[in-house]
Design a binder for these strands. Structure first.
Lengths: 218, 218
DNA sequence: AGCGCAATCTGAACACTGATTAGATTGGAG
DNA sequence: CTCCAATCTAATCAGTGTTCAGATTGCGCT
């Protein structure tokens, strides 16, 4: 609303906002850098002073939304952990946040999950994977998950939640309501948790998996 | 090799082949219709006599590769079912095929899983979802999976396999070798199967899920 | 205060894209 | 052998990502 300045001042953030809105409206590829620039009220070449390419803008946005997902999972888990008798509720709440997000904002979720989408430089914190990791530690502490089954369990749990989220975001699997998605998340997570302890023999070793974001830290 | 004909004769299939190769080389979006046409030795506008748009070509290709995945799962399951004592080996083999495919041909896998990628007209047969469905029926028959846990179990299993496949294809999760992927698939599937029976109380009802490809048939 | 510089933004340009159209070429049915 | 519908080409259009020379401005320095 203020008078139009030659210098925008917050162009980088404004471009990210515009791009996020465009992703929501037209998907990850259904818009142009010119469109985003115009929406912010700036020439298209101005964007190149803040992002090396259109792809760099998309990658930066991808990191931003993924970090937001991590925060949502964190607060959902914290809120559920307080009064509950069942220790698993924290993990289930984090999973629900993950899946709900994919269902309610599918285009943005596809962006965050998409290949090569993340900026190798950016540190995504808290990363969804780390949230699950922490919740699983609490389950072992409480005796709900066996210590033998703990190593690598995060990846099994992540796999389950991520599978449901992507199937829903990509429209390959259809549920009638958000509540149905919550129930499906619970069923899947409870099955995985129960099966992890049951199917892991003592001293059995499973392959070493890595998350791409921790890989980069090394 | 042969003399260049004005009429290509097999242009539709040749374009699909070229597009698949380009996806493998440059991802789903890193190539142009002109490039695919040139590779086949044809003008770019010729493609529009076989596909309404570039997107239609991509959708048709997506259906083709997804059906191929279904066939690979089917034959893997059939081969594993014969001599084995453990009935679960059929399902595990199908899952391995799914995950291996995503790991070995990630760009093509992303195409097949990608949103809106499938032609609503095309019937994908056998659909990966249906292969899992059939294998789960065999598990109930053999008494490995409880009948109470059977309804909707396909979606829990699909979720698990699909999650692992997409995490690997998108590079979010890293495993050191194809063998590690096989082991991870086994661990995940065994956990889910064990947990499904264990966590399903009699007469418990879970949400009704649908697969997009069966939805279309209705 | 004012000077100057580096950061920021503009406008024009380039090669390339998906898509459309009018017209050339051809195999095959009658 | 003729004609026609299917197939392919060449030319063209608006729109894209990206670059670059130059205009504009905030900010630190004296």
């Amino acid at each position: 609303m203020g008078k139009t300045h030659y210098h925008h001042g917050e162009l980088r953030g404004a471009l990210l906002d515009a791009a996020e809105e465009l992703v929501r409206e037209h998907g990850v590829v259904g818009w142009s850098l010119r469109e985003a620039s115009a929406r912010v009220g700036v020439s298209s070449s101005a964007a190149y002073h803040h992002f090396a390419s259109r792809d760099a803008l998309v990658r930066a946005l991808s990191g931003r939304v993924l970090a937001r997902l991590g925060e949502r999972m964190n607060s959902a888990a914290a809120q559920a952990a307080e009064p509950s008798a069942d220790v698993r509720q924290g993990l289930v709440a984090a999973g629900r946040a993950y899946v709900r997000w994919a269902l309610e904002d599918p285009a943005v979720a596809r962006l965050a999950f998409g290949s090569g989408a993340h900026d190798p430089e950016a540190t995504i914190s808290p990363h969804p994977h780390d949230v699950l990791d922490a919740e699983l530690d609490r389950l072992v502490e409480a005796g709900t998950l066996s210590a033998e089954a703990r190593p690598g369990a995060e990846f099994v749990v992540w796999t389950a939640i991520h599978g449901l989220a992507t199937l829903l975001a990509d429209g390959l699997m259809i549920l009638d309501s958000p509540e149905a998605a919550d129930l499906q998340t619970e069923r899947t997570l409870r099955a995985v948790l129960a099966g992890l302890t049951r199917e892991t023999a003592p001293s059995q070793s499973w392959p070493a998996a890595h998350s791409a974001h921790t890989e980069r830290r090394a």
